[in-house]
Design a binder for these strands. Structure first.
Lengths: 215, 215
DNA sequence: CGCAGGCTTGAGTCCATTCAAGTACAGTGG
DNA sequence: CCACTGTACTTGAATGGACTCAAGCCTGCG
């Protein structure tokens, strides 16, 4: 985001911001709670969730660095915001950011394009939630993480640590934790991935994983 | 959208726009096709769909009047756009709208808030797709239509015509057409709705329908 | 060592799907 | 007016994939 600011603006902004750390599981903002400030993700993964009355939960978005957290001009959160891993955030007071957006069209445009990207991701995910099988869902999730955590990687091989627990993956995919576990085991048995440790995954051939995604 | 424009701007705009009609089923723009123009919905319902290689389809958005169709500054459609009912559109050339957005911050802000609303709707729908039962999905869909088609209605009673076929409803909910039909029959048997004609639905008590939505 | 939390595996159940008829209705042509 | 046709929708029976419930397995930690 800061790429859209001049040196002067960056200086002015830095007077208001504050670096904060949170550990995995910390609730950063609650559903239907007042929105007090914005924040950019510096390191780690933040999950956006929605919960039904009876406790069923769905992750509706994941935010990686350098995404901005917080909905522009809203007074209330539509989602609950929670640290999925240990995270570093850079908090920005609500008024300060909104003032800057008003006076800086380039910044406004940058936020618009982040919002459009989030909308695209949400719609891609709707296809996964509505129309894919459990096996395809899990493969799609692994592919998403593989491409997000190391977008620059070349070749067919990938190694990464999952930033989410099995329970979070299940909430993301609209599955149960048991089904996620079974499908991971099946991908391993089929030679598509190796599970080095619970969280550490290796993908020998990315195209093979892609072939399991159904699209 | 036009509410953000001055009289002069409206006049300048009207030189470029063209009213067009399409009937139900017409494809307005294809997935991965170049985006040539924007359009606002004047009447009717437009569906945004995504399709997997093997033909499985998911509706990822519905647009009612007065939504703007077309993604700002994109050269390619991420979704396929199709008339779900007979529709009237007001087409605006790509360059003309983009020029106006640049020079009119109020218009840019209006588009930003439509995009944020679409994002909210997409996220609400992800919960429905991922975590609700078939019965809750169908009830949620009926509630969505009831509130969208007549947002001003007061009291507990609602009557409306479904703008979507059973097949479209199934694609929207991530279900099969048979399951949609069965759940509609069940809602009817439970006295939550009456099916006056295939498409014409009456809801005697909106709160009773809400209670079937799971949230 | 014992314990707790996260994860995996197994067995049985249930809900949505698949496959297959059957119904309702609008449009068409005799 | 009535048969004929096609489309949209409904209903039934059987199947299967994901869920539920229940154990069991690792691994880190006190």
């Amino acid at each position: 985001m800061c790429g859209a600011l001049s040196a002067d603006e960056l200086l002015a902004l830095s007077a208001h911001t504050r670096l904060v750390n949170h550990e995995s599981g910390d609730e950063l903002a609650g559903e239907k709670m007042p929105a007090e400030s914005y924040a950019t993700v510096i390191r780690g993964v933040v999950k956006l969730t929605k919960t039904l009355e009876d406790g069923r939960q769905q992750i509706v978005g994941l935010q990686f660095a350098p995404d901005l957290l917080g909905r522009l001009n809203a007074n209330e959160n539509a989602v609950s915001v929670e640290a999925a891993s240990d995270v570093n955030l850079c908090r920005i007071p609500k008024a300060a950011l909104e003032r800057m957006v008003k006076s800086n069209p380039a910044l406004a445009e940058r936020l618009m394009s982040q919002t459009l990207r989030e909308l695209d991701e949400a719609r891609d995910w709707m296809v996964t939630l509505g129309r894919k099988t459990a096996a395809e869902k899990v493969a799609s999730f692994l592919l998403l993480i593989a491409t997000h955590l190391d977008p620059e990687a070349v070749g067919e091989k990938r190694k990464f640590d999952l930033p989410l627990s099995r329970a979070d993956i299940a909430d993301f995919l609209g599955l149960t934790i048991e089904t996620v576990s079974r499908q991971m085991s099946k991908l391993k048995a089929d030679g598509v991935i190796s599970i080095v440790a619970n969280r550490h995954i290796e993908v020998p051939k990315l195209s093979k994983l892609k072939a399991c995604c159904g699209s």
